[in-house]
Amino acid sequence: MIAAVDWSQVFNFADYGELIVLLRNSIIAGALLGLVGGLIGVFVMSRDMAFAVHGISELSFAGASAGLLLGVGVVQGSIIGSLIAALLIGLLGARARERNSITAVLMPFGLGLGILCLALYPGRSANKFGLLTGQIVAIDDPQIGWLIAVTLVVLIGLAVVWRPLMFASVDADVATARGVPVRGLSIVFMLLLGLSVAVSVQIVGALLVLSILVTPAAAALKVSASPLVVPLLSVAFGVTAMVGGILLALGSSVPISPYVTTISFAIYAACRAIAAVRTRRSSAPRPAPVREAQEGALA
């Protein structure tokens, strides 16, 4: 006989109000991550760095595992791992091709290192899995404090460098000619990206970081090209995915990541569909006058 899923275990919304109060911190952290992910994702997309994000997240995982093993702390370890990876990729991979190969080299190394640290760690196995696939519910108060602080650093940093970073991302040649410190901004961006990845690893897990640092921005770019609308939409999508995922996960035995990734993916699919409909509409009217003209001639 096939083992039936006990849906009352997967979804159990009794005591929901109590749970929400209990996990208020997690919800705040999730919302902040949605905010940060949505904003930094715009630059990840315009700098074409999705693959690099994935690479950083694996080294962040290695750092977190080492932090767990050595007792430094998961969050602290993951931040250190992230920053090292982000700087390496930023300094060595100025050109896209070079960046991709460095990322591809770092990624399995980080994953292997993380697995080694976890194998040596004597503690509970649930924690171990959580670093790869998400564990926000398991995070305690001091860790939430760290995550919120890091998130604020990223938000403030982005607010300061936003416009010159956008200039440097879309038009490095002209930005350089205009005296924008393109190289310095690229390093600053990598550091902010590293911090964002470290926070994401804690919440959605190293394997699923892209769902919050890339998918919302990619979705927003499908439906708009305005430098104001894209970040706003991207943030709305990111926060929806994060908070929605946490709220759904509260009443279930499934971790939050599947909810987050599914909501995020659904939003992206919807935006693609909207974009497709729009292109069809904008290209459709063209044959119409011709047909009318022909009909007119026939009449």
Binding site: V42, M45, S46, D48, A159, V160, V161, W162, R163, P164, M166, F167, V170, D171, V174, A175, R178, G179, V180, A218, L221, S224, A225, S226, P227, V230, P231
Partner: peptide
């Protein structure tokens, strides 16, 4: 992947180097 419209590209020539958003 460029979040820019025509007018935004021109606008960067005006204030693209200024900090902030």
């Amino acid at each position: 992947g460029t979040p820019l419209r025509a007018r935004d590209l021109v606008g960067l020539g005006l204030d693209g180097g200024r900090w902030g958003f």
